[in-house]
Amino acid sequence: MLRSNFPPATANLEELGARALNLRRKMMHMASGKGEGYIAQGLGIADCLAAIYFHELRHDPARPDWPDRDRFLLSTGHYSIAMYAVLAEAGYLSDDELPTYGLNGSALPMSTFDETVGVEIVGGSLGHGLGQAVGMALALRLDKSSARVFCEFSDGELDEGSTWEAAMGAATFKCDNLVALIDCNGIQADGPVTVAIEPVADKMTAFGFETYEVNGNDMAALVDALGKCREPNGKPKAIVLRTTPGFGVPTIMARDRAHFVRVGNDEWDSLIEELERENG
């Protein structure tokens, strides 16, 4: 399949919005079953994942090991709830598996491991994603493949020195088949991001990336930025995603402590109702 034929030039924003809502529904049901989870980050990244998997990514759920597939790397392993949702929505996983999310012995653990079909790397030890994306981009280039590598990582991972080592590597090796998707949701384990990581977009540009900055919960803006990242111009690409944790469920959006959400069993039902009410 030639790059020029894919991805399509235009996107059906309405369909992508519906996909994003489906991802949020799946996530809410997974979190309610487990009773807890990294739901705020998942809800925040849902629009990006919908745009990637249902518009931008060249992939085939029937052939998860297809050598010429585009790769999507989730560096933030704790966003597993979002990863499983999109893998189920795309057909890699069955919806029937999702209720086991995070339960003992589940094939869908709380953090992502590459034993799960469709998961490319072990996420969760933060700062591991971008460098592996560089290696995959180099391998694809050696194989003369037109496939690309999309690597999601978070603003918190900009604290990790390894992320910046990898960023320099991407520019040094002119990985123009690599797109960094930086989820800037402003939260970390201890609360708000505290390290002086801003201005993220300027830093990525200074490190040699062609950088775009968008509202990560605006589907039209996401699709537009992804479209600009297709140019094989010798530069790695970065999209700085300004996302809102809990997007789509106002009660979660309003939480001060959103890194890990644990609420009572009875409350999940009302949060799910809230998602439908706000987005129905």
Binding site: P67, L130, G131, Q132, G135, M136, A137, L138, G169, T172
Partner: peptide, 22 residues
């Protein structure tokens, strides 16, 4: 590939290459 004095990246890039068939 010489990644410079960046040993964490050395191992990450090697892992990425390996996970794509090298």
């Amino acid at each position: 590939f010489n990644v410079g004095m960046a040993e964490q990246n050395l191992i990450m890039v090697a892992a990425g290459l390996a996970k794509s068939g090298k």
